[in-house]
């Protein structure tokens, strides 16, 4: 095991009180990435603090539906940390309804926008966020609008148009003017 990988596992074990299983992979250029699933959402805050102590930078946060929509039964949030070129991803598994995670913004200031974004697009509550205003989507819209509303591209595509036209024709046959 390389030095960075060993240090990551050590600080995660120290912060979370038990050894975490991190699956390490190397790409064709030898660049490492580590993948770890945390048991409880609350664990991400002490884990982030421990990684900040190692000098890790929060690179990105990815929220997603699992499995893919429209069959989703849950949500996930993946936090991607950079350790001088090595990427560590900590993933939280969350319920579809009532998903909550602690805010990392008190530890990483650049978590601010990332958390506000997944809060409004994925309807995941962020506990303890210092500035929980809307970021991209107007505040008049309910969160997770892409899960509820019909996208314009679907609304105007050929399949919808033909289906709609058949309905119009059927209606005309039933009720000739």
């Amino acid at each position: 095991m390389h030095e960075v990988e060993a240090r990551v596992e050590l600080v995660l074990a120290g912060a979370l009180g038990a050894r975490q299983v991190v699956a390490w992979r190397r790409d064709v250029k030898g660049v490492a990435s580590g993948w770890c699933r945390l048991g409880e959402p609350e664990q991400v805050l002490p884990a982030a603090r421990a990684l900040a102590g190692l000098g890790a930078r929060l690179s990105m946060v990815s929220a997603s539906l699992v499995p893919a929509a429209p069959n989703a039964t849950g949500r996930e949030v993946a936090y991607h940390f950079d350790l001088d070129g090595t990427t560590l991803t900590l993933t939280l598994e969350l319920p579809l309804q009532g998903a909550r995670v602690p805010s990392l913004t008190p530890v990483y200031r650049n978590a601010d926008w990332q958390e506000r974004e997944f809060r409004e697009l994925y309807d995941i509550e962020v506990l303890g966020h210092p500035n929980p205003g809307r970021l991209f989507v107007d505040r008049s819209l309910e969160p997770a609008l892409f899960e509820r509303l019909i996208p314009y591209s679907t609304f105007i595509n050929g399949a919808s148009g033909e289906k709609l036209w058949r309905q119009v024709q059927a209606a005309q046959q039933e009720n000739p003017s």
Partner: peptide, 8 residues
């Protein structure tokens, strides 16, 4: 099809 494609 991707299940999720995210970029920062």
């Amino acid at each position: 099809l991707p299940v999720r494609l995210k970029w920062r």
